[in-house]
């Protein structure tokens, strides 16, 4: 469609980059990726749980909190475990289960596995690679047919990243997202970190708010939240809380670029959504 714009992490992946999402579907439409109708995020569908916490069906005994919801629970839970262990294609230090993007793994009939996957960001190009990797892992484990569906509701939030996932991100030099993004809901824009050289021409009004790490984005410091303290984004290298925003968009849509003013290292921050 439009040329794929953002520079992406260039880790080699073991599986083919192009794949239809389902091994039983036709091979048409590989350029656009999604076979028609593969997405199940119908707008007529249930709004339940959109604003509330995690989906009701992510609960039972399966590893990493993945629902199996199937009569063939043993088998499905094994598949759920395998699918959950697939590494994220762009952040291979975390698994899909730790990232919280795996919604449901069921086996509606023997040998046929249905996987529901939710994207981190609507346009996340890694979804297709994830689907291909899951498919490959499950087929190697004996699943004759694998179908990976993309679901949008309820929306993924950085709150869905597990504690283990957060630890791994930090260990990899990426500041993990702060918790509480879902509860804060869609938030308004923050104050400006604009820096001005004194005496420059232009505006004549009162001075703008100074640049501080706590007023740097639409992440809770919105207009109705001005002045409210928020836990700082810590440098994943030295642990300092003295960090500043360089750019709201970094190597992928889900990350922002920050810099530590203590150790001077730039780092990615998994921004809250």
């Amino acid at each position: 469609m439009v040329r794929r714009p953002a520079p992406r992490a260039a880790e080699p992946r073991p599986s083919p980059a192009t794949s239809t999402r389902t091994s039983t579907g036709s091979s048409a439409d590989t350029s656009a990726g999604t076979p028609a109708g593969a997405s199940t995020g119908t707008y007529a569908g249930t709004p339940a749980g959109i604003s509330a916490g995690p989906p009701a069906d992510i609960s039972t005994g399966a590893p990493a909190g993945i629902s199996t919801g199937s009569p063939a629970a043993t088998s499905a839970s094994t598949f759920a475990e395998l699918a959950g262990a697939v590494p994220d294609p762009e952040l291979p230090v975390v698994t899909l289960a730790e990232l919280g993007v795996l919604r449901r793994v069921t086996e509606p009939e023997p040998g046929r596995v249905l996987v529901e996957l939710t994207p981190t960001y609507t346009g996340c190009p890694a979804v297709e690679a994830m689907a291909a990797d899951i498919e490959q892992a499950l087929r190697e484990a004996g699943a004759a047919h694998v179908e990976v569906r993309t679901v949008l509701a309820p929306p993924w939030s950085t709150d869905d990243i597990s504690d283990e996932g957060r630890r791994k991100l930090a260990g990899h030099g990426i500041a993990p997202p702060r918790t509480g993004a879902r509860a804060r809901g869609p938030v308004l824009v923050g104050l400006s970190p604009t820096r001005r050289v004194p005496g420059t021409p232009g505006r004549t009004g009162p001075p703008l708010a100074p640049c501080t790490p706590e007023t740097d984005g639409p992440e809770g410091e919105g207009q109705q939240r001005q002045g409210q303290e928020r836990e700082p984004v810590r440098c994943p290298h030295c642990g300092s809380a003295a960090t500043e925003l360089l750019s709201r968009f970094s190597s992928t849509a889900c990350k922002a670029l920050r810099r530590c003013t203590a150790c001077r290292e730039p780092f990615d921050h998994f921004k809250e959504v």
Binding site: Y43, P47, T122, A153, P155, P186, V189
Partner: peptide, 16 residues
């Protein structure tokens, strides 16, 4: 957002 899953999803992104 209450009636359209895409909107519920995208509303957090469009804030950015």
């Amino acid at each position: 957002a209450p009636s359209l899953p895409l909107a519920a999803k995208a509303v957090r992104e469009t804030a950015y």
